[in-house]
Design a protein around this nucleic acid. Structure first.
Lengths: 153, 153
DNA sequence: AGAATTTAGTATGTACAGATACCAATTCCG
DNA sequence: CGGAATTGGTATCTGTACATACTAAATTCT
């Protein structure tokens, strides 16, 4: 790669840095998961994880757990149902709600992917020492916690 | 908000934390900018900033500067041209390329927004002390630099 | 010069992500 | 109990974001 003289932008802007890390994280995840023989996005994975930890919750509850809005979760759920990783049934207690559970395939996918995802996490923040990595996680978690669960809507 | 017993997910996963911060950052930016009387997304702002620093570059060069792919930059540029913040002309040297420059309105928008954006940055990482904030920026910048400019495409 | 490769931009398709609006079902409250 | 407010889900719209594939133009290599 030759030097084009183009200066990259936003090197000290937190928003831009976070956006960069976000796309890096997504691309590493998608690539490694595909190499493992699966076709699953980060959000789909997080949703499966949330459903394993909270079986039978409805879409609004899932949205809360993974910090997305209802419309997004509806679309993500559509894809997971279509891939037969999640079962969606109308709640007998509340006809508006749809209760979500992992299918056998969903559980199997999550089990197979968990070690892959654990291993890929270091790649998401390349060039950091283990101490720096831990520090970054701690700071990010603190900021995310301070932001609260309901801020993004 | 009452406790529903739903556990949130991914509290130690860097990818999920980064995704959370990304949405927080976007929502803070959009809200503050709208309050200032403008209708501009974070990516559109970064693009304007890049064009001010590198007037006359083409879309591929802009994509490189802001770390997006050509297709995305094409769409973003469409909107900036439509808003009359950017002028797009076919390069006389290379008939494939389109040279981009800020219009007067583009420069004015950038000037008006710069202090707003500077001020809003602290809000993107709430609950961090100034030292922690600086630390986070340093770590994020280090990781982004290690990732390299061409990794996400 | 001519063929092969690379590069710029666009088109299309998929997938988040939030805003808004809407319907249906439920809960709240008088 | 019955009207009002809330809640769950969907539909639509805008805007990233990337993959792939395609055209046209430029560059490279023989």
């Amino acid at each position: 790669m030759e030097d084009t003289g183009i200066r990259s932008v936003g090197a000290t802007m937190p928003g831009h840095l976070i956006r960069r890390l976000h796309q890096l994280s997504t691309s590493v995840f998608t690539q490694r998961v595909r190499e493992a023989g699966f076709d699953l996005t980060p959000v789909q994975f997080i949703a499966l994880d949330a459903l394993q930890q909270n079986p039978g919750i409805d879409q609004a509850r899932l949205a809360e757990a993974i910090a997305k809005d209802r419309a997004t979760v509806g679309a993500v759920t559509d894809r997971l149902v279509q891939k037969k990783l999640v079962k969606r049934v109308v709640s007998p207690r509340d006809k508006r709600a749809r209760e979500l559970t992992l299918t056998g395939a969903g559980r199997a996918t999550l089990d197979a992917l968990m070690p892959v995802v654990t291993e890929l996490q270091a790649e998401i923040l390349p060039g950091l020492t283990p101490e720096e990595y831990a520090q970054f996680i701690a700071l990010a978690a603190k900021a995310a916690r301070a932001a609260g669960p309901g801020d993004a809507g």
